[in-house]
Each structure stands twice: as structure tokens, then as C-alpha cells.
Write a protein that binds this DNA or RNA. Structure first.
Ligand SMILES: Nc1ccn([C@H]2C[C@H](O)[C@@H](COP(=O)(O)OP(=O)(O)OP(=O)(O)O)O2)c(=O)n1
Ligand SMILES: [Mg+2]
Length: 423
DNA sequence: ATCCTCCCCTAC
DNA sequence: TAAGGTAGGGGAGGAT
């Protein structure tokens, strides 16, 4: 459905257009072969994926209108300097056909690390739980009410951890990315001359920023941005490299401490965990979640020299939203009856990303308050049955999900969508 | 209704 | 210059 929308204004034909055109030795008019705009696209697609249907395709009658080229392939960027680049050793090493390409690629891909670490940390938590003889967490359905959930998340994790090796950059705007091209010395952008500023903003490129610190964020830089646009916003932006081993070492200490403390724990990622501390707050913290949070922040900092922020709430949703309010370097609590008073955009809700935000805004739903003013049926018409239901509940601060630490893996896979080719 | 297939979307 | 992976929830449309 999304592709139908994306290609609505393009000429997209079924493969028979190619076969038939070859058969008659010229380009046939494309209209009769049109894939989009005929209705019933589902059936056409089913037919496409059935190899027998290709064999039995009827030869088309010859049309008389003169068709122009109907098959549209999304335009591909052609690198003019390709041949020049081919001789350079960097490109030669990164041809996807190189025999060690996959190994080298995975060694350097932060997203690959993120994915494998997530699985490893789930495993590690399971190990630690049995080592610490933590409960099975099976009877949760009995007393689901009145839980205390914490969301613990390192502040700009990769930057903080990389800066342990580059401490003198701590107060500058800093990003972690592969490109290390930059001024030799960090500068303050307010005391630098125009020309150097322009020179620095040209030190851009398409290296992705995995993480940037809060100084950089004050300029509008964000995780996931390309370095080029980031330096336009923040010309003095310094970069530091990845230290993958350090990130993993820190994360293991993080999970060791948290698993010991929490009643229940769910590993969310290398730098982020959900805790159920309903009982734990009574073990030396006088029943105060904030005092326990303070203790956790202290102990994690001692152990890792990295800062975590903590969100506290009666369910996963509120704890996560609270973390965003807590950052950087803080703790924030949202009680069930406070949620309505917080001014949030739909995009601030976990689970609402780029596309769902667009879909909702198209229906004049931009804020969480707007969601609350919509009916369940309206939301389900926009987002689908379950997503609409979840949105309806989340907009009211309702979230009945429980922490999961012992789910079985359902799938595995591997893919690479980057690399250089010899044309 | 429910299941199956082929996607889309989100998160880190 | 450049290292955009991957699991899991879920929707649409058709088959059973
Ligand atoms: N687009 C992204 C987002 C994240 N990450 C990596 C680097 C981050 O440091 C780490 C953790 O992601 P977070 O979303 O927790 O972001 P940060 O920890 O960097 O910042 P903060 O949590 O303070 O917002 O995952 C990445 O490589 N690419
Ligand atoms: Mg973080």
C-alpha cells in the first residue's frame, strides 16, 4: 500500500510489458500493462509472485499508440568520479566484492553492533538472574496493579563512553562517527573568525552521527544525522571514533548492577533497561523510588564514569516519557494522574515514528491532547485496529504491558545495505 | 474467524 | 567521502 502511494505518479508496469515488447521488437504502449491505478493491486501482486503465472501470461495484442518508456526504475545516483575513486585504496578495500568485505563491514557497523548486543544483553540478564537467584516473575498477573517502573538510559552513550579516551573535549560539541576529518584543535564557535567557520562547515560528508552530546544538541544536531548537515548547524562540531569494546564493557557493568537491584528487568538495548522496582524500593530506600534512583545513578557512575538518567512511572510508557524529561543527568517521575498535564506531540509517544506522525497530522491530530479528543474508531481508521487501540490508551497514560525478560527468539537474519560496487 | 503471505514501521 | 542492521509488532488482502 505504501509503495502504491509512493509510485502513484510514476509509470509502473507488469513484467509482461518487457516480454511482449521484446517479442514484437519495439516498446509497446505502457497503459495496458499498468500495475498501479487499476484497482485490485493485491491480486496483481499475488500474480506477480507466482512463477507459473509468468509462464502462462497471455501475449498482448499489439497496440498502435506510440508508448514512451514505461518502466520506471528509481533514479540511481551516478558517481562521476567513480573511476578516479576506484584506484584509491579506501574504495578498493570496500568493494562489496572484496573477499573480506563482510567481516570488515560488520566489524565497523555500529547498527550491527547495536543489534547483536541487544540479543547478547538479553542473554546476559537471563544468566545474571539465575546467578542472583532472582524470581521467575511468573505470577505477575496476580498483582499487576500499582507497579513502580524505572527506565534507566545512559546520556549520549557513545559520546560519553568515547570521551573517556578524549577527556579534554568534554565541554565542546562532540559527535561519534566514522569520519575523523576536522580541525586539529577544538574551537569555540563564538570566538572563531568567519573564514575558519566556513572552512569547518565544509568538513562535512555523509558519515552518520551515532551519538552527539548535549552541547551539540543545543545547535540542533541529532543522533542519526549526516555529518555535513550537522556541521552546517554546528561548525565547531568535533568528532571522536567508536570504541565498541568499551561500550560493551560498560554495558555489562550496567546490567550486573541493575539486575542485582531490580525485581524484574528487561534489556532494551546496549544503554537502556526497564526495571520493575516495586519491592526493591523497600530494601533500604524507605519506599522512595527517587532515593533508589539516586542510588542507581551514583553506583552506575562509580562503576562506569558514565551518567544515566532515570524516568519513573506506574507503567512502561510513563517511565519512558519521564526519561525524556529527566535528561540530561536527572531523574523525573510521572504519576498516573499527572500525565494529562504534560504537553506532548504525538511523535513523543514511543511507537509513533516518522510515518505515523505524518498520517495523524494529516487528520489534524498533532498533539497527544488531540489524540484524546479523537474517538477510538477514528484512531483505528487512521492507524489500524491494534495501533489505534494502543494510541487511544497511551494518549491517556494507560499502558498494560509487563516487563519481558524470558521471551524466546522468533527469527534471525542478516543483511547489508552498504558498500561500493565496480559498477 | 482465523490463517497465511508479503510487506511496512519502529527502535536502538 | 563512506561502515544505513535487525527483531518484533502489526496491517491489508486473499485463502481456508
Ligand atoms: N540513530 C542512532 C541512535 C542511536 N545509536 C546508538 C548510539 C547511541 O549512543 C546509542 C544509544 O541510543 P540512545 O537513543 O539512548 O541515544 P543516546 O544515548 O546517544 O542519547 P540520549 O539517550 O541521551 O538521548 O545507540 C545509533 O548508533 N544511531
Ligand atoms: Mg541513551
Amino acid at each position: 500500500m505504501s509503495k502504491e502511494k509512493e509510485f502513484r505518479n510514476y509509470k509502473v508496469v507488469r513484467p509482461e510489458w518487457v516480454v511482449d515488447s521484446v517479442r514484437v521488437g519495439k516498446q509497446l504502449p505502457w497503459h495496458k500493462y499498468r500495475l498501479i491505478g487499476q484497482g485490485n493491486i493485491g491480486a496483481s501482486i499475488n500474480a506477480l509472485s507466482d512463477p507459473l503465472s509468468q509462464l502462462s501470461a497471455q501475449p498482448a495484442r499489439q497496440g498502435s499508440e506510440s508508448g514512451n518508456l514505461g518502466l520506471l526504475v528509481k533514479p540511481t545516483l551516478v558517481i562521476d568520479r567513480f573511476n578516479e575513486g576506484l584506484n584509491r585504496s579506501w574504495v578498493r578495500k570496500n568493494l562489496a566484492s572484496d573477499k573480506d568485505f563482510i567481516k570488515r563491514y560488520y566489524k565497523n557497523s555500529r547498527l550491527h553492533h547495536l543489534s547483536t548486543w541487544k540479543a547478547e544483553m538479553k542473554d546476559y540478564v537471563a544468566q545474571l538472574r539465575s546467578k542472583y537467584r532472582k524470581g521467575k516473575g511468573t505470577d505477575k498477573k496476580v498483582d499487576r496493579g500499582n507497579r513502580i517502573i524505572m527506565h534507566v538510559d545512559f546520556d549520549c552513550f557513545f559520546v560519553t563512553a568515547s570521551l573517556l579516551s578524549h577527556p579534554y573535549l568534554k565541554d565542546k560539541p562532540v559527535a561519534v562517527c566514522h569520519s575523523q576529518q576536522q580541525q586539529q584543535q577544538p574551537v569555540d564557535s563564538d570566538q572563531i573568525d568567519e573564514e575558519s567557520l566556513r572552512a569547518m562547515s565544509r568538513l562535512g560528508g555523509t558519515s552518520q552521527i551515532a551519538s552527539c552530546n548535549y552541547t551539540a544538541r543545543s545547535f540542533g544536531v541529532r543522533n542519526g544525522m549526516f555529518l555535513g548537515p550537522a556541521r552546517e548547524k554546528c561548525p565547531g562540531l568535533m568528532t571522536v571514533p567508536y570504541y565498541f569494546d568499551t561500550y560493551k564493557r560498560i554495558s555489562r557493568r550496567f546490567y550486573e548492577e541493575l539486575t542485582r537491584i531490580a525485581d524484574e528487568i528487561q534489556a532494551v538495548s546496549i544503554d537502556e533497561a526497564l526495571l520493575d522496582v516495586t519491592e526493591a524500593v523497600h530494601h533500604g530506600f524507605g519506599g522512595s523510588p527517587e532515593r533508589l534512583a539516586h542510588h542507581i545513578r551514583q553506583i552506575i557512575y562509580e562503576q562506569t564514569q558514565c551518567v544515566v538518567s532515570i524516568g519513573i512511572g506506574p507503567n512502561i510508557l510513563l517511565a519512558r516519557v519521564a526519561t525524556n524529561k529527566a535528561k540530561p543527568d536527572g531523574v523525573f517521575t510521572i504519576a498516573a494522574d499527572q500525565f494529562d498535564t504534560i504537553d506532548l506531540k504525538v511523535r513523543d509517544l514511543p511507537g509513533i515514528g516518522y510515518t505515523l506522525e505524518k498520517d495523524l497530522v494529516q487528520h489534524n491530530i498533532a498533539s497527544v491532547r488531540d489524540v484524546r479528543n479523537a474517538t477510538l474508531a477514528e484512531l483505528q481508521a487512521i492507524c489500524g485496529e491494534k495501533t489505534g487501540q494502543a494510541l487511544y490508551e497511551h494518549s491517556r497514560g494507560i499502558d498494560n504491558r509487563v516487563l519481558e525478560s524470558d521471551k524466546l527468539r522468533q527469527a534471525f537474519g542478516a543483511d547489508i545495505g552498504w558498500g561500493w560496487s565496480a559498477k
